[in-house]
Amino acid sequence: MVDKAKLTPEEYLATILVPEKGRETGHVCWDCKHLKPVLKGSKFPPADLIGWCTMIHWPFYWCITDFNVVKKCYAMEKGIYTPKKF
């Protein structure tokens, strides 16, 4: 268990919203604050999504599949959405 007193609100949020997949998928999205990942243990939606991009088709969400690896993106903005290994 990490000490939540030392976490920023964003880092804390990342400990609650644990994604199903991670950096091993190779998407740059894992460093992007616009990613809304599929949460761990969700049976729904289908498993070939890593999550949704909340930005490039804003206000709609775009499904990011794990087989279509996003290597670069004009909407990429640094931010914490996934936990770094604590």
Binding site: K4, A5, P9, Y12, L13, I16, L17
Partner: peptide
Amino acid sequence: IYMIQGHMYR
């Protein structure tokens, strides 16, 4: 209290 996504943060 400080709650984030329904969890107690502080």
